[in-house]
Design a protein around this nucleic acid. Structure first.
Lengths: 145, 145
DNA sequence: TTGTAATTGAAAAATATTATCATTTAATAA
DNA sequence: TTATTAAATGATAATATTTTTCAATTACAA
């Protein structure tokens, strides 16, 4: 599943949110790059084309998009508070520590581990976080080691 | 491996850092709770017993301890910038979304996935992040659902 | 087209984090 | 044990980040 404006609009409206031009632009901006972006970076990009969109709106939009699963917040590599577009239904991320490029992957099943942990600890597991960090092919050549 | 003051002192000194009373207190504070703590929470606890230890020292100490692997930074459950003691060599975390209790687990091998991802994407993988979030046994009874 | 609740932008407030610097201190070697 | 020295500390200030507030605007359902 690729990024789709119609999907974004539908999901927003389904949850009682309006599909405003600002939200469209923010979503589009995050979807149109391969790396992950911080709120400040998103604001900067957005602001270039749309100087009337404020930083506060970016923050508010990020909160909503993340809550609805339309974007993902990344953590590995020290880059907390950084967002990437949410392409497929359930997936995990592989992040380049040099250029920030994000590659999605899916098809890895953690349910066995989840079950083991439930049994061993008594926890009722709700969610998980799985990310890999490393050097993408392009950066392996560039980076001095 | 449990928390040991001697180990903390040794590792700090091995890396050219001094083992100061402040660092001892911060490390001990993080080790003496089951949950994860934010810098502010750590400062608050530390400050009660040692009013002379400042917030800046707490921040500086957390950076060093994290870098040396003596404490772990947690991310799942919206609690970025939250720390827990680092018990065993390599392990992952299971976090209670209600009370913040952290349970370590190890013995789960991601190397097969790591290899698959390397092959598929060309990435040279450096590290990963794996955390589970859920309700611990005690909180399952308490929390209204 | 209209009514209304949601959204926005701007400014201010609140939080969180980092830099600076004079003073103190841990750890090494004499 | 003492002297030496580089590292660490605490206090303050500076910076960065995020949230609140509120009047004006706007999306969208009726």
């Amino acid at each position: 599943m690729r990024f789709s404006e119609k999907k974004t609009a539908t999901i927003l409206r389904q949850h009682g949110y309006k599909f405003t031009p600002q939200r469209r632009v923010v979503t589009q901006t995050i979807a149109s790059t391969q790396d992950h972006l911080t709120p400040a970076a998103i604001y900067e990009k957005v602001h270039q084309e749309h100087p009337n969109i404020g930083l506060v709106t970016v923050y508010r939009t990020l909160d909503i998009l993340a809550k609805l699963g339309l974007i993902c917040e990344l953590h590995a590599g020290g880059s907390c508070h950084s967002y990437t577009t949410s392409a497929s239904e359930h997936h995990h991320h592989l992040i380049c520590s040099n250029c920030g490029k994000v590659v999605d992957f899916s098809g890895y099943d953690l349910s066995e581990l989840k079950q083991r942990l439930s049994l061993e600890t008594g926890f009722e597991i709700e969610d998980h976080l799985l990310e890999f960090i490393g050097l993408c092919q392009a950066c392996q050549k560039e980076v001095i080691r």
